[in-house]
Simulated scan of single mutants.
Amino acid sequence: MARVDALLAARPGTTRPDGVREWDLGVGSIEVLPLRDGKQVVGAELRVPLVDGEDLIREALTEAAGLAHKAQLRLFDPQLGEVLTGSATERVVEQYLRTEHYRRTAKPMELTPGLEEAMDRAERVDMGLPAERMSLGSRAVLFAVAGFAILFFVMRFLMAQLRGE
């Protein structure tokens, strides 16, 4: 990440207080942030906003490939699951356009029951905030199911003993 930061410092953009670097590419800007595996930084993540058109993704791919070459790193696309080469550009653009089309045509998240709450809980976990406790009713149902399961297995064992198995 240090090599990437050093190369990005010479390019137009700003660094936000949260450590995310906004890289200005002329046709738009993308976010560059450390990619972590646990506490270890294993790479840099490039986030390209979904916009209608392919100019930004093409520019991002061109600039990122040049940056990766100068830093002697590999450019990897997790959606394709491969290291990007010049021939992969069109497949990346096609995937980007499919995702952008889905963003425009999919139902808003508010119409999907429970999704907003699930996303809020996931965000709380990502931020390290304490998770919400399970409601009393949910705990009672879970306790009752567990009790019946234990009772079932105990009765099954005792019946097997009576039959001599």
Rank of each mutant, 00 (worst) to 15 (best):
R16F: 00
R16K: 10
D18G: 05
G19Y: 06
V20W: 01
W23D: 09
W23E: 02
W23M: 03
D24C: 14
L25K: 09
L25T: 10
V27H: 02
V27Q: 04
G28F: 08
S29D: 02
I30D: 00
I30R: 02
I30K: 06
I30F: 01
E31H: 07
E31G: 08
V32R: 04
L33E: 11
P34V: 10
L35G: 00
R36M: 05
G38S: 10
K39W: 07
Q40K: 14
V42A: 05
V42N: 00
G43C: 07
A44I: 07
L46A: 09
L46Y: 11
R47L: 15
V48Q: 06
P49T: 04
P49I: 09
P49E: 07
P49R: 07
V51L: 12
V51Y: 04
V51S: 11
D52V: 03
D52C: 00
E54A: 14
D55S: 09
L56K: 05
L56Y: 03
I57T: 05
R58V: 05
R58D: 12
E59M: 11
L61R: 03
L61S: 06
L61Q: 02
L61Y: 02
T62M: 09
E63C: 06
G66R: 03
G66V: 08
L67E: 08
L67G: 02
L67Q: 00
A68L: 07
A68V: 02
H69V: 03
H69P: 00
H69Q: 10
K70L: 07
A71F: 11
Q72D: 06
Q72A: 11
Q72T: 07
Q72L: 02
L73W: 10
R74Y: 10
R74N: 04
D77C: 14
G81K: 06
L84E: 01
L84S: 01
T85G: 15
G86T: 10
A88H: 15
A88P: 00
T89I: 13
T89S: 06
R91N: 12
V93P: 05
V93H: 08
E94Q: 09
Q95A: 14
Q95C: 03
Q95I: 11
Y96G: 10
L97D: 02
R98Q: 14
R98H: 08
R98K: 14
T99C: 03
E100W: 13
H101C: 03
Y102S: 08
R103A: 15
R104K: 15
R104Q: 15
T105C: 12
A106F: 12
A106M: 14
K107C: 09
K107T: 14
P108A: 11
M109C: 05
M109R: 12
E110L: 04
E110A: 12
E110K: 08
T112H: 04
P113H: 06
A118F: 09
A118S: 12
M119T: 09
M119H: 04
D120P: 02
R121Y: 00
A122T: 00
A122Y: 08
E123Y: 03
R124P: 06
V125T: 03
D126A: 15
G128M: 12
L129E: 13
L129G: 01
L129I: 02
L129W: 14
P130W: 13
P130Y: 10
E132V: 05
E132L: 15
R133C: 04
R133I: 05
M134C: 04
M134Y: 01
M134F: 04
L136N: 13
L136W: 13
L136D: 15
G137F: 04
S138H: 08
S138K: 14
